[in-house]
Design a protein around this nucleic acid. Structure first.
Lengths: 230, 230, 230, 230
DNA sequence: CATGAATGAGACTTCATTCAT
DNA sequence: TATGAATGAAGTCTCATTCAT
């Protein structure tokens, strides 16, 4: 949580203990957001007490309200913060991708798992889905900032595969959801079932994604031609 | 809340009123569970007030506590009650199925949508996933009563396909989750995003399931042999 | 505020101890209002804690909120309650008055002191004036329900005196305020200065009113001279 | 809050800025008291936040506590400061007055309105009366520093009128309060009702005082009659 | 002197739960 | 059995006051 001490040359003057008061001001919102994220994910919105959040961030109750006017606003800020324009860079990255579309799809899903699914960020998606009923505003925001861009990104990838003659033509919108579905599933699984029960058949996300991509690309059916997949 | 006794002539028959009373008494727990289910699904556990549940069930707050010792127990009862062994009959039904496995898979998923997904029953899955963190006991119960039987059922279907030479061999456990994932996705979608936001690309569940099955069975890749699709 | 025990014949059965729960329901709002009135008057709106009000009314904090949705609403209810159409009967009474207008004015002011000034009701007028800045809505309500009717009532009395040739003609609106002023003064005095300081020249309200009426009616000037009025 | 130093050419004279700074330092307490007075009058003691006071005075919250050890002490200082012996000069002035006592009374009241009533100073009287319950000490202080001297001043004027054969003999103490009453009324009116409600019959203070003096001096009764006064 | 971030006691309000009727 | 008035623990939020810079 504390920023790792950067490697510094011996000539660096080490600032005594980093003045407490002044430095904090800028760090506080981030620390609070981080604390709030983990607690919200752990216990849900309602069951998380602001005092706990403050305590985990190492400040008092009152301080929290210096930065966020209410518990709800804190929640919204957590969502906004965690989401914050992830898609701009992703879009670019995928645009530049040179390989065939099969690999792109596989890369895309694995990459999502690494950068979102397995991080705490996935918790807020679970949270948003769980609490959507209570925060329509947040749900709408999420829809706009995450769902739609994500949808569009995947759509473009599939279109690329079709254009290059790699994928057969298909109902794009639903195909997109077919790729989103396993991620949502993984994420709900991680934060719900697996979190608290010794599941019978534990899921290894990487293997699951692998299988999933295989199936979606090549299907289950027995075929004459060997699947191109690994 | 009880309808005021209407003025009636001495010749009026009393029985109808008495009947309603009597039937009510036995129906109470069920009515309460129903009311609780819908409210828990709509608003989550914490945000649902017992008074609302009681009101929706047409009784007073006190009465609710006559049947359920606490809000938590009410929640658990909702889950237990709604889940009640569905799988016995399903198992049988699928055992008797005569067609090819492609059709069985398609039938299975459509049938789930009809009997669970589109009914109120889907709400409890959403509920369990949302509140799993706070009710590990319930999550475990669900795991045992729903997840595992469901998993096993689907596993047997896939195994049947492989045994009959219809499906290629695959990692069964993950393939099962690949079939579960879209259902979970559909259900979370229905109860979360679509419920409160005018989604850009609304999902028609039947079409989505159709596409999903197509893809999982035949894949996305361009092939020489035409898919056996429906 | 409590209804005086009605005289009852010896044959009346005295109800055991008056069942606690049921009877209360109707009495509660009144008891709370009474408690609130005295506390608000004693300590002002902000310094009065709802818990104190509840305690003085013999109930718990939560009970208060069963009857009044917020502290502000409680305050408004106190004002409304204490004010509640006092003027209808007064109007009538004064309309029926037979004596000369000098006596009517004197009667009017003495009567105000007896029925309002010396009762707790005067406290809320002080309160409204003190807190007007924070409760514009209340101030407007008071203006409409108390100030204006009171003003009109006095105006009619003065007009009567002029019509009967008892009073000289004068600027009625300001003359009305001249009669209101000493009441307001008395009431502020009672609730502010005298309440907490051993005043040097304590005011006996009845004597003060007497003198005030004398002066307003007959003036200070030595008799035979025509007044030097500008 | 401090004006940002404007970019200036090297030839700019610095002094003005320095002067302002220096003067500021000495002026601080006064500016704070002024800000506090207006806010306390507007919103009452409890509803006024020290931060607002500081902001209106152009300093930070912390600075306020450099000059006043607590909010309560700030309040007391406001009262003490604003009251500051006004009566020495007034006494003198009235002692020197040559005209008849009728004119003196009229002059006295008009003069009070001009110098106190219509200025911000009137606010503290409103303040003291409103908050007397919470600050008995202040009320006593006010009683001693303002009420009593004022009372004595007026008493002396009335006695002068009697001594000169202008006024009839009367109960002096109450007569004094009869002259004070309209001022208190005017002042409460100004700061309470009129401040926030579009009053039906707006009061012009000068006209009101005029009428009031007329009535108190000459009475309401038709002239030639001997007054019926008891 | 001045600042403003931090504190934490304290106030209002909610709501699951009890219990006399 | 049913009611609904009453409770009080618990939670959110405010704001006077402190203190390191």
């Amino acid at each position: 949580m504390a920023p790792p001490a950067p490697p510094h040359s011996p000539t660096d003057a080490l600032p005594p203990v980093r003045q407490r008061r002044t430095r904090r001001k800028e760090a506080r919102p981030g620390e609070l957001l981080e604390a709030a994220l983990s607690l919200f994910v752990e216990k849900g919105f309602a069951a998380t007490r602001v005092e706990e959040v403050a305590a985990r961030a190492g400040v008092s109750k009152g301080t929290l309200f210096l930065y966020f006017p209410s518990k709800e606003e804190l929640f919204k800020a957590v969502v906004r913060e965690t989401i914050a324009g992830r898609f701009a860079e992703w879009n670019e990255e995928f645009e530049r991708f040179g390989g065939d579309s099969v690999e792109l799809v596989r890369y895309c899903m694995n990459s999502w798992w690494e950068r979102v699914g397995q991080t705490q960020a996935s918790g807020i998606t679970k949270l948003v889905m769980s609490e959507a009923g209570m925060f329509p505003e947040i749900a709408a925001f999420y829809q706009q900032e995450v769902i739609r861009p994500g949808h569009d990104l995947i759509r473009r990838i599939l279109q690329r595969g079709i254009d290059r003659g790699e994928f057969r033509s298909m109902h794009l919108d639903y195909a997109v959801y077919s790729l989103i579905a396993p991620m949502i599933f993984l994420l709900m699984w991680k934060h719900s079932m697996s979190a608290c029960t010794p599941s019978s058949a534990p899921i290894d996300p990487v293997s699951f994604i692998d299988t999933q991509v295989d199936l979606l690309l090549s299907g289950m059916l027995v075929r004459s031609d060997p699947p191109s997949a690994r």
